[in-house]
């Protein structure tokens, strides 16, 4: 049913640390690798080795250059995936009920057996989180690895989304934002985690942790004190005399 749940017991989502993300794309490949063989239709590629390859990815990492008012420019890597919005516009527009938000944990999913592939949900999403699979004709999106996080066949440390598990710098954190004591809630509170485009009223669950403030760069050389030589005695007298000539 495409009516959104009034509230969800949990609010599972990601806290993405823009300070530690190095833009290695490991989360992109980990996501593609896992979701290629797990939940629903595989993420197909069209013409993968040709001149114009194209394919479905549920997570993409952008790189931005940000110039602060003072100081040097920064490169900020910016992973973009489904934010599992509380007021998800992609869910309510769905005419078939294929798109839904789970009341138990807040994950937004697509029931691919009911999806007609009209693409309206992808239009309704401001974040570009949904991509149509050209081979299966159904909409694909981040499942928060629903087939990993509850999977008792996996070792406990693997029961988190593939992008989180695969991140080599620990820039991605998975947890329950409804629990104020969870790791992601505390991280978000400590670091000033923010939601994307909050004025669109989608109430995203995922939070982005802004880059920490950079240290102030010292313009003077560390050798500067050594260069300021104070001379005395004969050399000092010579220095004063030569300076006056």
């Amino acid at each position: 049913m495409t009516s959104l749940p009034v509230s969800t017991e949990k609010r599972l989502g990601l806290a993405i640390d823009l300070d530690t993300c190095v833009g290695c794309q490991a989360c992109v490949t980990a996501c593609k690798g896992w979701n290629d063989q797990g939940y629903g239709a595989p993420l197909s590629d069209q013409n993968p080795y040709g001149a114009e390859p194209s394919g479905v990815f549920l997570n993409r990492v952008h790189s931005y250059a940000v110039q602060p008012i003072e100081g040097a420019a920064q490169t900020i890597n910016f992973p973009r995936s489904c934010l599992h919005c509380e007021d998800a516009p992609c869910v309510t527009v769905c005419p078939t009920g294929a798109s839904y938000k789970r009341s138990e944990d807040g994950i937004v999913l697509v029931n691919e057996d009911a999806c007609i592939g009209c693409g309206l949900c992808a239009w309704a999403c401001p974040y570009g989180a949904r991509e149509m699979d050209a081979a299966a004709g159904v909409m694909k999106k981040c499942t928060l690895c629903v087939d990993r996080i509850y999977n008792e066949n996996l070792p406990e440390e693997d029961r988190e989304p593939a992008c989180v598990r695969g991140c080599p710098t620990g820039a991605r954190h998975f947890g329950d934002f409804a629990d104020p004591d969870s790791k992601v809630s505390r991280l978000s509170a400590e670091r000033g985690g923010y939601a994307l485009m909050p004025d669109l009223g989608t109430k995203p669950v995922n939070r982005y942790l802004p880059p920490r403030k950079k240290d102030v760069r010292h313009e003077a050389s560390v050798l500067a004190p050594l260069l300021d030589i104070k001379v005395s005695g004969f050399v000092g007298w010579l220095d004063r005399v030569l300076g006056k000539i």
Partner: peptide
């Protein structure tokens, strides 16, 4: 770009490198 990414809180944002070199559904559709 600044408000969409929330990076306007740091400074002026420009695209350094695109997320992918080829086209995708988003670029074609939206």
């Amino acid at each position: 770009l600044g408000t969409a990414t929330g990076l306007d809180r740091i400074g002026e944002v420009t695209v350094f490198e695109q997320a992918h070199t080829a086209g995708n559904y988003l670029l074609r559709e939206m």
